[in-house]
Design a protein around this nucleic acid. Structure first.
Lengths: 181, 181
DNA sequence: AATGTAAATGATATAACATAACAAAATGAA
DNA sequence: TTCATTTTGTTATGTTATATCATTTACATT
């Protein structure tokens, strides 16, 4: 159990997160190589920092982490790296939180034609802070159905459902939030 | 046609927008009266300014408009009014745009138990800038279905679909964007 | 009308998030 | 090497949002 791939990190605070990080970085290296994009040391490091856990991370949190290890780092450094990672579909931005989270689906998308961008839908637990990217055929169908009926051509989807995950519903009080997992 | 209620303001730039404003303000007065909430002159004016059109408005745009008519106005004045209006379900915040838009469904919600908050789903045209609140049974069903299967209790839904509305798809070039409609 | 209380607004400051613009360095191709 | 392009560094500023405390207003009670 400890080294399995974690598809649903809700209620999995004790999983072997190192394997999540390694998997994400390996997939990112492969995806960039395949596309002829450059996962530079800075970009790789930012991606690694985003993957510190399964909780969305703010740009300025990342900035502080980079500053801890590199001294003076300015906001554009972080935002440029995040732009690159988002463009490659390696990271998603959660609009309702103004924060970023690593994408665990790199490389296994059918709709990945060259670039890695894809619609990302999330469940976000307001208690433990974990965000999980979901994929649901009925949801996708409903969206394309309503867009079609309205004659609307969707270019970007922001779908973020916040509430309580199953694990957090099953405990009476809020637990302290750690920064990872 | 000119005085009809506009349910879908995409491609309706010439509609009688005054009737939209009047309807929204009347509905807001009624809703607040029913709930024992106070739609003060400031809150009412902010709501009116939000309803200048069917395009999302930034908090600082509203601030500037208020300053034009009242001299010195500080950000908290606008944000407090917006908080109130959002809590009452009279205005929605579009997370992907960091902007606000009037809700045209005040008072006709089945799930309106005392307070007026409700999930709001949007189509947002990236060309004309208009945002339309939609309601789709299949979408609602898909959401509750996937949440149920995941054991997730949804508290807030952010669903914002950006792209091109039917009218904008049917014209080759972007038209100039006016501030209302 | 005077008083007390809670709600709303005013005012100041600052926090938090993000980008424009230009300089310097690193990279890769010719 | 030279050149062109991409990436990173640096400075400054723009944009969005909130914390805090003072003041005013609304309104129920006396």
């Amino acid at each position: 159990m400890a080294n399995q791939t974690v598809d649903n990190p809700f209620a999995a605070p004790g999983h072997d997160h190192r394997s999540c990080i390694v998997a994400a970085l390996d997939a990112a290296e492969a995806a960039c190589a395949r596309r002829g994009e450059r996962l530079t040391p800075l970009r790789r490091r930012v991606l690694e920092l985003v993957w510190r856990g399964h909780r969305p991370v703010g740009a300025y949190d990342l900035l502080a982490l980079l500053q801890d290890e590199r001294g003076r780092v300015a906001p554009p450094t972080v935002y440029r790296a995040l732009d690159f990672l988002c463009t490659q579909g390696l990271v998603h931005r959660l609009e309702s939180l103004q924060a970023f989270i690593g994408c665990g689906h790199t490389g296994n998308h059918m709709d990945d034609q060259g670039d890695g961008r894809h619609a990302a839908h999330f469940l976000i637990c307001q208690d433990c802070g974990v965000a999980v990217e979901i994929r649901d055929g009925q949801l996708d169908g409903a969206i394309s159905g309503l867009a079609g009926r309205a004659g609307f051509a969707i270019a970007d989807e922001t779908i973020e459902l916040s509430g309580l995950c199953a694990a957090c519903r099953n405990q009476s009080v809020s637990r302290p939030v750690c920064t990872t997992s």
